[in-house]
Design a protein around this nucleic acid. Structure first.
Lengths: 344, 344
DNA sequence: TTGAAAGCGCTAACAG
DNA sequence: CTGTTAGCGCTTTCAA
């Protein structure tokens, strides 16, 4: 493997000149630069990333802190990771994947101190997140996907759950629905301060009240079975229901199945509107779900872009960006029917 | 950030001794070792990954070569990546994600020469794959997920499509189906030598013949719309069909929808058996799909394990492992009905 | 059982 | 505009 010294020798210059030419850190005469360039590709030279990092104290690696979740990762996460990796590459960085359990601050501290990465993008941030405090304390540059409750001046990119849920409620209200339910993630996710659960729950209450309709909420485990059960529960407790907003991808299939099984029709009798569910999954159900798709790729791109901007010391304003989900109409929503699934 | 010199000073030993103690590369007196250990955690010392890598010429990083596909990544890939990252971490390695277009050998060569990683796990290997040839030529240690056509002595882990498809055919044959179709990925995927498409197609032909049933195949683009279309095509051309094996996750929903739309019932009139489709997606359809689930996590684990074994120079036999998909019974298959969807 | 010292390949003063 | 040189923090000979 050709080293910088080899290149220097072949071009008849000092190694430093090669370095300067390579990084543009200092002006180099045109002729010299050309000789160096030539020597480089005759030798197939590639700078050694480790040596460069060690000397410059900048590895040009960033880590993606990637949750190990019991509930597993979804397609949204896949899109996110994919976009993050691509963006890092485009900006001349490498993306390292750190798969860590949510609570494990110690592991994160260890990883962080190894000097392998210049900063981190951290997923699945909770309202109170010990990991964020650790990063702040240790001066590790970071960008959050999601955000803490107390956040002030740390950069983040997150889904705008508030506006998305508001839009969803407005969408159903506009179709004439007067009694609308919200199916959230599990009670546990809410209790542990999982941002989406907490913010969406609050936003739903407010939006329903503002729209003057009867709104009610349910927590629901992330599984089709739980979705089926929650529908039974809802029809028992809320006989007037005609519209449902579901922010729980796995449960949504169960809800649809339960409705059909009871002889209900979607969307003639009930409208089901999915929130923050990936395109690939929403198109699989019967009927295909009208959905607010999460901006997964945008978030991935933005997260690493913002982080790298900071690392490069650019004079950038603090980025705290909220991106709403985008409505994709499919076949699960329509004008409200009379209650009790009486048909149209 | 405390360095090794700091630790050495505090423990009253030479840096080399600290190094030896840390790596167990040379015996160190018990008392000395203890003093060093103490100094280390008083200082919160963590060895610098770059320096260590530069000096030892082993970065303890491995890359995952991660395809940038037009058709996008699925949940199977997510599970795979997740398991790979976790395994790498468990073995004391870091996983770097290299998102590269399938054909881009040059990019890969560049990345590879930077000395950031000791080896690579490469996904989405095609029957003829220029990337593999490049890795071989440049002496980059690797482990394939999938395999080339000419493969001899390179390690790989792959889904056993042959046996899986054979099992799938046997499953339907056992239920009394005599006319069975196979819905593959796109014609293009087959033509470009995408292993799963090619191997499964061949395996289906053979298994159908061996089982003495009428088998026919169709290529199908990866989308629900294409799935719907293919079903119309099939019912027109193969009126006797009662069973379908679908190795195309996105198309499967379309197939189901088209069947229902034509008034057919699943599984009473038609059995639909999904192959290599993730659990999270198969459970979303109506009815939920009986599926042969891909061993994504196992492959991810195995891939990095095998690679790291080689990197550590362990005396390991060549691993070329095929893992079959695992049958999960859901509601889309049942005993064969009389043809024409006449019902039971 | 331990130390001293020469690099690993590069960057970034410092000096011309 | 270019060269010399001292590290970056570690591993690993060589020598004791």
């Amino acid at each position: 493997m050709a080293s910088m010294a080899d290149v220097a020798r072949r071009a008849n210059v000092a190694v430093s000149t090669v370095s300067y030419a390579l990084n543009g850190t200092r002006p180099v005469a045109k002729a010299t630069a050309e000789r160096i360039r030539k020597a480089m590709d005759e030798l197939g030279y590639r700078p050694n990333a480790l040596a460069r990092g060690l000397a410059s104290k900048r590895s040009r690696n960033v880590a993606l802190i990637f949750p190990m979740l019991e509930r597993g990762l979804g397609l949204t996460e896949m899109e996110f990771v994919s976009a993050a990796a691509e963006t890092a590459g485009d900006l001349g960085y490498h993306l390292v994947l750190w798969s860590t359990p949510l609570g494990d601050t110690d592991l994160l501290t260890k990883l962080t101190r190894q000097g392998l990465v210049d900063g981190v993008v951290i997923m699945e941030v909770h309202l109170e997140d010990a990991r964020i405090e650790m990063l702040r304390r240790n001066g590790v540059p970071f960008c959050m996907i999601g955000r803490t409750g107390d956040n002030r001046d740390d950069p983040f990119a997150d889904i705008d759950f508030e506006s998305t849920v508001r839009d969803a409620v407005a969408h159903l209200a506009g179709l004439g629905h007067r009694s609308v339910g919200f199916v959230n993630h599990s009670q546990r996710s809410f209790d542990t301060g999982y941002g989406p659960s907490v913010r969406a729950a609050r936003a739903f209450e407010e939006a329903a009240a503002a729209a003057g309709l009867h709104g009610f909420s349910r927590f629901c485990d992330d599984s089709p079975a739980a979705g089926r059960e929650i529908w039974r529960d809802i029809t028992a407790a809320e006989p007037g229901v005609t519209g449902l907003i579901v922010m729980n991808e796995r449960a949504s299939a169960g809800v649809l199945a339960a409705i059909l099984q009871q002889g209900g029709r979607v969307p003639e009798d009930y409208s089901v509107l999915s929130v923050a569910s990936s395109a690939r999954v929403s198109e699989m159900t019967y009927p295909p779900l009208t959905t607010y798709h999460p901006p997964a790729a945008e978030l991935g791109r933005l997260g690493v872009q913002v982080l790298i901007d900071r690392l490069e010391g650019r004079e950038v304003p603090l980025v705290q960006q909220l991106i709403p989900c985008r409505l994709v109409l499919r076949d699960s929503t329509g004008p409200a029917a009379r209650p009790h699934g009486a048909g149209s």
